[in-house]
Write a protein that binds this DNA or RNA. Sequence first.
DNA 1: CGAGTTCATGTTAGCGCTAACGTTTCGAGG
DNA 2: CCTCGAAACGTTAGCGCTAACATGAACTCG
Lengths: 352, 352
Amino acid sequence: MSAPIWRIRKKRTRLWLMDATRTTPTMADVAARAGVSHQTVSRVLNNQAAVSAATRAKVRAAIEDLGYRRNLAARTLATGNSGIIGVLVSSTNLSGPSGSLLAIEQNARSKGFWVSMASLQGRGSQEVADVISHFIDQGVDGLIAVAQTESALEATLRGAGDLPTVLVTSGAVDEGHSTLDIDQAGGARMAMTLLKGLGHTQIAHLAGPSYDLHAAARLGAWRESLLEGDPGVCFEGDWSSNSGYLAMMTLLAQGNPPSAVFVANDQMAFGALRALHEAGLRIPQDISVIGFDDIDGSDCSFPPLTTIRQNHDALGEVAIELLVEAINGLPARSVKIPAELITRSSTGSPGR
Amino acid sequence: MSAPIWRIRKKRTRLWLMDATRTTPTMADVAARAGVSHQTVSRVLNNQAAVSAATRAKVRAAIEDLGYRRNLAARTLATGNSGIIGVLVSSTNLSGPSGSLLAIEQNARSKGFWVSMASLQGRGSQEVADVISHFIDQGVDGLIAVAQTESALEATLRGAGDLPTVLVTSGAVDEGHSTLDIDQAGGARMAMTLLKGLGHTQIAHLAGPSYDLHAAARLGAWRESLLEGDPGVCFEGDWSSNSGYLAMMTLLAQGNPPSAVFVANDQMAFGALRALHEAGLRIPQDISVIGFDDIDGSDCSFPPLTTIRQNHDALGEVAIELLVEAINGLPARSVKIPAELITRSSTGSPGR
DNA sequence: CGAGTTCATGTTAGCGCTAACGTTTCGAGG
DNA sequence: CCTCGAAACGTTAGCGCTAACATGAACTCG
């Protein structure tokens, strides 16, 4: 069935203008061709019961013949439901946000939703407000916001109003919104437990940017896990490999390096590894390194990186689950998805 | 201005049911409050000229007071334009597709469009058809498809029909669709030119998956750039670091390794670097490595990776530009964005 | 100073769909 | 044979918006 030649989108010719140019077929056209009423066509399309098999078949055939497509704008207008959810993510091309986005989208689709997305360019809260505002105008059935900063979180709470909303964040939310995140502090604690178990007593931290909630959570858990007497050396980076490289260089330049370093993400850990190689230190004999994220490539760094895995797929699944609950008016709840320790070769006991 | 308590979404109460429960305010409500007609409200909202400053202000105030939000579904139904573009991307969490997606989204928004997105789960063309079908139902103003495989490309062409479409692909398209890509073959040639210029006469290739159009383009350019007498050793990976590691291991196991390797992407190059380190080879003295993509981290691998940069931001910008042209009925055209050689420390002259 | 403009605004008729209710048909049950 | 009640459809009245046309006031100008 090839595309009918007369399918014309945009600026459809008004029929009363008596112009022979055809527009895209509507339910009425299908109804006419099938010899039924448009309402019957609607019933067939929505799989409602009260339609005889014969009629159903006739309608289906007419739909096929005309290449009829249902107009979702009209349907949304009539029902008040769009079948679309809005997803707001921070713009970074980091594995975290974009991994979450893809996982959310795929799970949404498998549950019958489609997604409109917007990524944040900066860190201004006005942008968040604008985006949410648009989603509401568009009539989305719900909103999932991946909020990595305090300001984005606040702006989301302010803008979402009574729109069913799921917040993917490790920040604190007191209102009645469902909240979801991979357990950042728990993951960081796993890293620290591993290192301490290996016998490390001084563990430095290369942190992510301070405005980032994940970075803050990891930093906090690191600090709380320090052993008595550990000065707790820490340098801040910006998630990039290069910032990890520079942070590690600074750490080494200080002299008297610790025997282990917990790095806030894998990218920075890669930079740290480079700095260590260049300094002629052996990993893990001279110094252990552990990252966070388990991005593709962590298994093949030199040496393969011990890290904390975040399960984005699970996050996407639960996010949709929570959103559906919110849409159905169920009470909000919060979920933390456990992180997972992936032990590879960049960690070991402090050796000689 | 706090959110009015009576804002209720979904299943709005029908007015003629004479129920006092308020619904979300409409243009008519705003009009009543401002003491004008709803059409005047519409004019204000659409920034049309023929409205006096005083009226405009009154309407604006009424909109504020009521917390009025325009219903885009109704607007779309009335005008035939949604202001939304559909973006279809392959699902991989690789830097390429997700970088393109983010760049496209941001440029779309800066041009006044919003994006609905769908990522492909598998490689089946039915999924592509379904997604495009939905976009059409939704009334998108245009479509951007990031098609990395032949089947996705074909399915897109088949499904898009007369919908304004831009294909981000390095595949061949003969129909009247605008096409856009970062110059894959050109980038590969730059890599080969660099290596040959450094004096390498035998250059192996670690390729991406054969079904991928980018992998194919890079492979083809590599093959064509080989010097006379070079056997052209090549192993195929799947873009992952581990596949690069394995491919390089295989290459080394063969014995008599070449003096340089062109790797299809940076991830695989990282794996290759690891294999070389483990084999005790020095980079670039013993063997030069060049990657493709310039992902974050390439600047801090050990040693920093020479690679070919893809400018996703430029791609996003041009994609929107082409789509707007297509929407305005301008003739289709094709753009290739040049790749850029980033020389770092993983390449050098074949040394002893 | 009256006819023709222009400007600001109101009125009407849809866009394509669904919900609610009305109508017809047909068979069961008394 | 007639009543009643499903089952299977049809009809009507919106959803909230915009385009097109209608109206009325102020204003220009010979």
